[in-house]
């Protein structure tokens, strides 16, 4: 049982990377738009399906599908995923303009219920177009490789998932730390009324928040599809509890907390399977969530409000 732990730690890092990418958007939305976005999971699924739809389109443009090195996918898939991310944020920004913008002054509860409505609509729209059955990005089968000296087996795709997450997190860090827009986002999350007083255009910051949050959500959905080998319309919704647990664990409103929380929740969920049935995985996230809310509701990196 214990001998499985290194392997489970690795799986945890893979799923933690995906949770972290999803959690960043939830955290940014919470700190800048001031509500919990229950549609975030379905934005992940939307990104995963848009990518699926774009693979043949990229094919007609002559982008080769041959796998890159040991990975199970090629340039065609990567192009489809990048365009899928862009399409996702365009749709999400349109939703903001159509729906959320009218509700800027509404209370948190109104906004939260609105996101639940959007979540249901989005999920059912995906089901309407693609059906409830799993869809596959690729039929290729990838064999895990034994890592010498470490008692773990890894698939190249999994290393790709972790690398992409690390790269994106690093880019996000540079963006928030050193660009004018990134600093303005932090300022807005810190103190929205003062941000306005300094001349920051809040609507522009909200736009950036959706663009970043939705793109990373779409990427998380695609990477979940790469890791799981299939996607369903439920893909994001099923991960939402873990994502919220991760975000609250790290300290809601702090994107770095979301990253840390994502990795911890991902690892905890996977390692728990060495001791309890896999069916209880969601209970682990739930347990972390309840425990954190009882002991330290501001989260590990959260600040007092």
């Amino acid at each position: 049982m214990l001998s499985r732990i290194p392997q489970l730690l690795f799986y945890g890092l893979v799923s933690g990377s995906i949770l972290a990418l999803g959690g960043i958007g939830v955290s940014l939305t919470y700190s800048i738009l001031r509500f919990s976005n229950f549609a975030h999971g379905d934005m992940m699924a939307l990104g995963a399906y848009l990518t699926l739809a774009l693979i043949p389109v990229a094919g007609t443009l002559g982008i080769p599908s041959a796998a890159i090195g040991p990975l199970s996918f090629g340039p065609r898939f990567i192009v489809a995923a990048v365009v899928g991310m862009a399409c996702t944020f365009v749709i999400v920004v349109a939703l903001d303009r159509l729906i959320f913008r009218r509700l800027r002054k509404a209370g948190r509860i109104t906004l939260m219920i609105t996101t639940i409505g959007i979540a249901l609509s989005m999920r059912n729209a995906l089901q309407f177009f693609w059906g409830p059955q799993p869809q596959y990005y690729t039929a290729r089968i990838q064999l895990a490789i034994q890592v010498p000296r470490l008692a773990i087996r890894v698939k190249p795709d999994q290393l790709f998932v972790i690398s992409v997450a690390v790269l994106l997190v690093a880019l996000l860090h540079l963006f928030l730390r050193y660009t004018k827009t990134g600093k303005a986002m932090r300022a807005t999350s810190d103190n929205p009324s003062l941000a306005q007083v300094t001349g920051i255009n809040t609507e522009r910051i909200i736009l950036w928040t959706w663009v970043i949050g939705a793109s990373l959500a779409a990427l998380a959905g695609v990477l979940a599809g790469v890791e799981n080998k299939f996607i369903t319309p439920e893909l994001g919704w099923q991960m939402l509890l873990s994502i919220f647990a991760a975000v609250i664990l790290g300290g809601i409103g702090n994107p770095y907390g979301a990253i840390l929380g994502g990795v911890i929740v991902g690892v905890s969920e996977e390692v728990s399977t060495a001791f309890i049935s896999t069916g209880y995985k969601p209970a682990v996230a739930f347990g972390i969530l309840v425990l954190m809310l009882l002991i330290r509701p501001t989260g590990l990196l959260g600040r007092r409000s």
Partner: peptide, 23 residues
Amino acid sequence: VPQVENVFPSMTVRENLEMGAFV
């Protein structure tokens, strides 16, 4: 300068000043 909450607490002194000249 508002009476309360007139700084960006999670940002550094320098970043606070930079935000002052945001426009």
